[in-house]
Design a protein around this nucleic acid. Sequence first.
DNA 1: AAAAAATGTGGAAACCTTTCCACACAATGT
DNA 2: ACATTGTGTGGAAAGGTTTCCACATTTTTT
Lengths: 352, 352
Amino acid sequence: MASITDVAKKAGVGIATASRVINGTGYVSEETRQKVQAVIEEMNYVPNELARNLQQNKTNTVAVILPDVSNMFFAALLKEIEYLLRKKGYKTMLCCSDGEETNEEAFLDMLKRNLVDGVITTSNLLKQGSYAEIKRPMVSIDSILSEDIPMVCSNHKKGGKEAAQMLLDAGCRHIFQVRDTVDEEIRNRDKEHEISSKLFPFVERHIAFEKTVRNAMKKAKKKSKISYHETLSLGLTGADAYRKQAKEVFDKYPDIDGIMATDFAAIQYGIEAHYRGIKIPEDLKIVAYDGTDAARMFYPEISCIRQQIDKIAGEAVKLLLLQIDQKPIRKYQVTLPVQVINKYESETRANK
Amino acid sequence: MASITDVAKKAGVGIATASRVINGTGYVSEETRQKVQAVIEEMNYVPNELARNLQQNKTNTVAVILPDVSNMFFAALLKEIEYLLRKKGYKTMLCCSDGEETNEEAFLDMLKRNLVDGVITTSNLLKQGSYAEIKRPMVSIDSILSEDIPMVCSNHKKGGKEAAQMLLDAGCRHIFQVRDTVDEEIRNRDKEHEISSKLFPFVERHIAFEKTVRNAMKKAKKKSKISYHETLSLGLTGADAYRKQAKEVFDKYPDIDGIMATDFAAIQYGIEAHYRGIKIPEDLKIVAYDGTDAARMFYPEISCIRQQIDKIAGEAVKLLLLQIDQKPIRKYQVTLPVQVINKYESETRANK
DNA sequence: AAAAAATGTGGAAACCTTTCCACACAATGT
DNA sequence: ACATTGTGTGGAAAGGTTTCCACATTTTTT
């Protein structure tokens, strides 16, 4: 394969000059430029990016770490991130952690090994310390890894509150939520430090949801009884696992009429309800949290709290590129608004 | 950042010796090994992968080109490919062509520029010639790029036939299919050369589907009238586009009772039918082609022709690694069986 | 007209590895 | 006792760029 030296030799110029022609930098006379350009085309010369990367210590590649591409939320996020990075001239290295700590560590290693210029991660399996050590461009989505690592997430507090309110307004009285959780070990660690929601912002939505429902319970004591229940989706993966959980929940709490769950789980609960002849939305209302296009495509009639994936991706990419370009970051924690997509008629309005 | 020279110097050994310790190659005395190892840990030395890549002219990275990650079929395929590559020590570069020719070309350029060791592509926007030129490891999924580029695909002929038969057996009489197409320009080129299905194996399923239905039409002439209709999904992207098409189709052919369409489209047709009060599967039966987990998760009751994504990914990765390792390839075209998932009671059985 | 700035060019160092080769010494074979 | 093989080590080249620096020539400024 032809190298720049070959080109320079054949064109009868110095290597530096050839390089300048190739990169369009510095001073080169028009005459020389054309001569070199002709040789380049003749020899079919293509610069070796590896050599460039080494010399500049830059790869124009960003690693995106996520637990599972086939999960619609991550797929949508990945699509957006890849697109934005591509527009900015960066390549995307896909890193599926598969929920395994060792994988995530190996991916972060790529930063040290100079393989990628930066990392955007949606995974959070490693101990907090592991991240703080790495003084390299990094952005996390939906989990706080360390003080100096920028994070972007949705306003989950608002999201949880709105979800509960939506169900209450639609007349639900027996309300249920499927709590997402992180790894058990991390949960325990969190309990000790009581900073759970500080480290994992998404926990806020569960807290806000419960709080909103319990507030309503107090207020509505006289008129109508409201009940609240929940379950954990600890380490559940795959549709079957959620489906099984849905069965158990419907068996245990036959009277629930309002559910909040993540898209993926929400759909399984919906299907199970359908199988049991529970009518949606008449007998049961579901709010899907995340509200990805995929979920709404399948269930156009489902209500949801929609995370604005495009904006999350936009902020994450922006924050990463700032670091790569060594520019200052103003806000280390960006919270983006959620969208409320309410397909249920509110009771008050219905009564009019 | 510490380099191997620093390590060698500090340990009082030659660079070559340090390299041998790092890579565990050649002869090194136990004493020296430990001495160097200690320095490595002390200095927190990590080899610069870029220099390695340059020296060995290998990146251990594979580019995966696909039109759209958020499409469930590609997401599932990507997940599997990434997993298999990771197990083999390769990294995955994600390349979304977004259905644009220029993107695909840019990604293929990465091969020339030594950025990736090989390419697995599911996209096929470029002219056939463009691929044949590139004498580098490459595998295509579902499209024949050139004689020497291995391809893996499902047995679409069987798939199309089975899909039609399934609908006919279930008693459908007015049968419809949504034909997937490639870029218009390519279609025209194909028409000229009359090799359409040779270049794009997936076209086989549409041919086989139509053929099966038309055969049934002839045979069943006396007993009951069977009709066949179709539409093209030329360049449709996004749920809305398919939904709109579904509306038009139901308006134009109000009596259809059997449809074959790709997962993504099938769901939109299903939703539109639902909205119109057409009962599935009583009044309308749909066969989803691809049968990804995602589609079956949403519509557990849907029948489908399922492509075995894990096997497709397995073959593709195997064929690519053979090329990268410069080993001979026996079969350049691998066809994998499809799975028939039939949820409809066949009429003959029902009549008994 | 002299000084300064702009333009054009090439050699060589630097980026950090791996690996070829040469050399030295010990152990083994005949 | 000498040749052969095995073990251990380091210098230097090679991989292909980019960029710093030095130098030469031309143009502009004062």
